[in-house]
Write a protein that binds this DNA or RNA. Structure first.
Ligand SMILES: [Mn+2]
Ligand SMILES: [Mn+2]
Ligand SMILES: [Zn+2]
Ligand SMILES: [Zn+2]
Lengths: 136, 136
DNA sequence: TTAATAAATGAGAATGTGTATTATTCCTAT
DNA sequence: ATAGGAATAATACACATTCTCATTTATTAA
């Protein structure tokens, strides 16, 4: 039995992990593809999707199913929350400490076996808040 | 100025609203389409999408951008939280009281103008937890 | 009431994200 | 070196959602 299964560290997987770890932007699969392609020009988009999914299943990275039409990925796997700009779609971390005790509350008030939770704030980021700034 | 703008209550919109209000299941656009079609057999799927979107923009209903590949809709607009079954995808309400003060916390720890938040729990629903039950 | 104008609809095409298929390449273990 | 299994690249496919536009329906102004 292993949740952290022994997945083979192919060159593609290594580069995907490294590039994802470099950024704090919670990139989409396509954005990861673009980053990775600079180092592995022949990699396929399917490989990126397949491996991001696989790494998320193995707990090596997080798959964020936030608002908007695309899933996003996060190299930081400890429980933390996010805010999404309704203007431009960017996703940033929210720094205050997580509240794992919420899971117990949810378990008490439902018939589910609760596995976890995520909080997604929405708002307007600095660039979108200040159109003058953007025009300059 | 009106957030709750004066949207015309066409027969299509009325039926969409009524059918959505009937259920507690947070249906997808397609599921709403199926419900509505029993009363308005000639309605177009595009009309359902267009009006669900418009009603959500006007605060008449909620659009839930939860995990999974489809958006879901909710006739209950006051702040409350949801849990999604990772087995079958169903979405239910979580009954404990909302925490609007979280928005202030998020505002303090970010550069965003915070507009709101949503909490999505994940877990296993009763039917999915009990395969025997499902087989019967 | 009627004519003009505007808004909404229905049908279907188009877009975009993500998944499945498959032949080929790459590892790994004998 | 060889055989079996795993991973990849290319591409086809699925499907949720949006877009386009001709037609219908509602509103407004004579
Ligand atoms: Mn993060
Ligand atoms: Mn609800
Ligand atoms: Zn923004
Ligand atoms: Zn379930």
């Amino acid at each position: 039995m292993q949740t952290q299964s022994d997945i083979r560290l192919t060159p593609q997987r290594q580069v995907i992990l490294e590039e994802l770890a470099k950024v704090k932007t919670h990139p989409t699969a396509n954005e990861v593809y673009d980053m990775v392609r600079k180092r592995l020009p022949r990699i396929g988009l399917g490989t990126v999707y397949r491996n991001l999914e696989l790494m998320a299943d193995n707990g090596m990275i997080l798959k964020l199913e936030v608002g908007g039409s695309q899933k996003r990925f996060d190299a930081t796997t400890d429980l933390h929350y996010h805010i999404r700009c309704t203007g431009c779609g960017r996703v940033d971390d929210i720094q205050f400490s997580a509240m794992p005790q919420l899971d117990q509350l949810a378990a008490n008030s439902s018939d589910y076996q609760v596995l976890g939770h995520h909080i997604e704030f929405s708002g307007i980021c600095e660039s979108c808040d200040d159109p003058q700034e953007a025009k300059k």
